[in-house]
Design a protein around this nucleic acid. Sequence first.
DNA 1: TCCATAATTCTATAATTATCGAATCATCGA
DNA 2: TCGATGATTCGATAATTATAGAATTATGGA
Lengths: 114, 114
Amino acid sequence: MDSTTTIRALAALAQEHRLAAFRLLVQAGEAGLPAGAIAEAVGAPASSMSFHLAQLTHAGLIRQKRQSRSLIYSADYAAMGGLMAYLTENCCGGQSCAPAASCETPNKTERNAA
Amino acid sequence: MDSTTTIRALAALAQEHRLAAFRLLVQAGEAGLPAGAIAEAVGAPASSMSFHLAQLTHAGLIRQKRQSRSLIYSADYAAMGGLMAYLTENCCGGQSCAPAASCETPNKTERNAA
DNA sequence: TCCATAATTCTATAATTATCGAATCATCGA
DNA sequence: TCGATGATTCGATAATTATAGAATTATGGA
């Protein structure tokens, strides 16, 4: 992960509705949630939420897939881990004290180690 | 850490010069760096850098201490850890897969476990 | 094909944030 | 107390980002 990507990710998360949506998706796991449910949960109008979900998607933090009429969004755990890693890189002068979360989804346990 | 604090921290980091400065300080360790050195390293005018350092300070990500004529800035590792923890909270549906970095500075090894 | 549902894109406006030179403040040494 | 150094604050301008209603696109069922 490079500086530009990281800034996009941080900027994407630095907004009330988007942070709430992202955390919701992080907690929702692999299954994800449809746009409408997210909008309702965070209390934002559909068009605003759509704008925010696009930002998160563009930042690579979440993914979108269509399922009938709904668009299901889900967190990209690898991107989240990459962000953490970038922030803590060479932490404390190179001792690499803790490499940050690499949260592999336990729902599809061991299926792939990407 | 709550939502408001987290957003302030993320917004603080979501800017080229501030991200560069923060990473510099994370790598610099406990000793920190004077404002002038940071400004020069990231290539920003003193007044701009001062503005950015104030934002990072206000977000609780870095601390300031005076040392003669210089103002020394250093990373707040606990705040960084708290930020990580908030983002990954209840990750993947409550399994708490990885608690994120809790980077205690190895420079003053074992001196206090705060 | 027509209607209803789910969601996005468009558009205009409001609000926030970044930039950086000039002026000011704080500290130190002579 | 004066001059020099390190850094912040002020202020005016530029640029970016958020908001949400209305219009539009995509899908599925009768």
